[in-house]
Amino acid sequence: MDTEPWEASEYYGEFDQRLQASCRFQIGNISLDRLWTYYFGIGGNADELALEAYLNELLALAPGQMQLVDTALTELSSDGRTEPAGQ
């Protein structure tokens, strides 16, 4: 895996991966809607409620799904896409 700190799933446990995802989501200025839609678009299978629970550290996701959440967060933030007010 790469050396990005939040992608260090092999070095930290899945709880850390979840915590990382949660932090990245909170500071990322992305709405849950937007994140879920994107995650679904790259093949994610968890529904929006499960994703919300995961990001609030209440639920575990399968390793593959956790990785897709990470990918979605990375791709959305590299787009510089924050949630627009109207546009």
Partner: peptide
């Protein structure tokens, strides 16, 4: 409108 566009893009990407 935004949500709808995002969803359409997600379906295409998926």
């Amino acid at each position: 409108r935004d949500a709808r566009e995002n969803l359409a893009a997600a379906l295409a990407s998926r």
